[in-house]
Design a binder for these strands. Structure first.
Lengths: 118, 118
DNA sequence: CTGGATCCCTTGTGATACTG
DNA sequence: CAGTATCACAAGGGATCCAG
């Protein structure tokens, strides 16, 4: 936990750094999916089916990005046909609170919107 | 605070709802900027100068989106020349924890990356 | 099964000039 | 001051086919 006082500009820079790593349509969804299944064998196909609407191309790209940033592990199993298991790293678990917060926010936002229409 | 158990698919849907409202390059930065200045007169020009890199076009568009979603207020002052004040709504304050978390995450991520290069 | 390569359309974003 | 209009380009993302 950071306790130093930082300026607004520094805050915005940090915020941008986060968004650069975690932003976009899919990354947080993938992180959430994997964090919900820490013990299972999460192979490519299974993840693709678990995240509605994502294409193979996007999933492939996003997984690569997340791996580069040390947020997930990619393990190739020498089976035949070969399979690949993806899992969250310990470091990657640091984004779980972020996704939790957004999940709750999304639920409450929908409630709020619905209330406004009644 | 939600205590109901929800399925992973529902979680991802809620996450997507959040990202639809708050996602993109600028919305969270704008929210952060405004939440840091709740008492000041935040006019268009000032916000534009406070958020490095944003264009007038984008700022205009994003402010409109945020207003539609009830996250910020837009108040036209009948001065001359006319000025417009933007401020966070009470509801909009609910996203402050999200931005705080991302600011901290961004700071720590940078530290981590630097450490990995040494 | 995993996922790279290619093609192509849509959307996002920036620069510039301009209006009320 | 507070934006809008227009153009132009980059990035995002889907579909399809193909290879290890």
């Amino acid at each position: 936990m950071k306790m130093d006082k930082i300026s607004c500009k520094e805050e915005l820079t940090a915020l941008r750094d986060s968004l650069e790593i975690l932003g976009g349509k899919w990354k947080l969804q993938i992180m959430r999916y994997l964090s919900n299944r820490p013990t299972e064998e999460n192979n490519f196909k299974k993840i693709k089916q678990g995240i509605p609407g994502i294409s193979a191309k996007m999933l492939s790209k996003e997984l690569k990005d997340l791996e580069i940033n040390l947020l997930i592990n990619r393990t190739v199993r020498d089976t035949k046909p070969l399979t690949v298991a993806y899992s969250i790293t310990n470091y990657g678990k640091s984004v779980v609170p972020v996704t939790s917060m957004l999940v709750n926010w999304g639920l409450e936002h929908r409630e709020k919107i619905i209330k406004n229409y009644n």
